[in-house]
Every structure is written in structure tokens, then in C-alpha cells.
Amino acid sequence: MTASPLLATALVGVGGALGAVSRHAVGIRVEGRRSVLVVNALGSFALGAVSAAPIGSTAALLLGVGFCGAFTTFSSFAVGTVRAASETGVRAAATVAASNLAAALAAFLLGSLLVAESVG
């Protein structure tokens, strides 16, 4: 089943609004750059699970493209890493860059493996 362009827009938009609000809520509770690491790892885990789950394109647009896509962020990560480089040095920035990648990659693979296992 393929969603019409209008339905796809609505699904991605609503998922995106929920994802952005959830990210904002995490940002209020977790201080500084760590909040970006937290949302990127959690959101990648969720996207791994969503992409391995036997769901239709409707749910994939809402949860995957919309929610997980918006909950995680590259722009805040990039600006935060560049600022870390100028404020605390290149080594600190490299740590931020590497830890985001390692955590998100591991989380994505874990999420997809867990769901693939349980779906069988």
C-alpha cells in the first residue's frame, strides 16, 4: 500500500511535530550537548526497530520518516561539534563526533536485530 502525496505529507508532518516536541522535552531535562547524543541514540534505536518491523508504508512515514527523523538531529549535532572545537579544542569535538556515530550506529543495529529476532 502506498500513501497518496497528501496523506504522506500529513503523516510525516504529524510524526515530525511529535518528534520535535519529544526532542525538546529531552533537551529541557538533559543539559548541553549530551541531550543531542541521547536523542540521536534513542531515535536511531527506534528507527532500527521500525525499519525491521513488518509495518506498512503509512506507519513507516509516520514513525520512521516523521517521528524518528525529526526526533534525531544532524544540524544541532554539527553546530554543537563545531562550537566544541572552538571552545574546548579539537580533541573534545572529535569525541563528540565519534561518540554520536558509535552510539547511534550501535543503537540502530540493536533495534533492528531485536525486532528481526522477535518477528522471526
Binding site: 520535535a20 527506534a46 524518528c68 525529526a70 538531529t73 544532524f74 544541532s76 554520536n100
Partner: peptide, 8 residues
């Protein structure tokens, strides 16, 4: 922040 994405 929603226009860009890390998970995808």
C-alpha cells in the same frame, strides 16, 4: 532540527 536527521 527536524529538517535534518541523524537516524536516517
Amino acid at each position: 532540527s527536524s529538517f535534518t536527521t541523524y537516524s536516517t
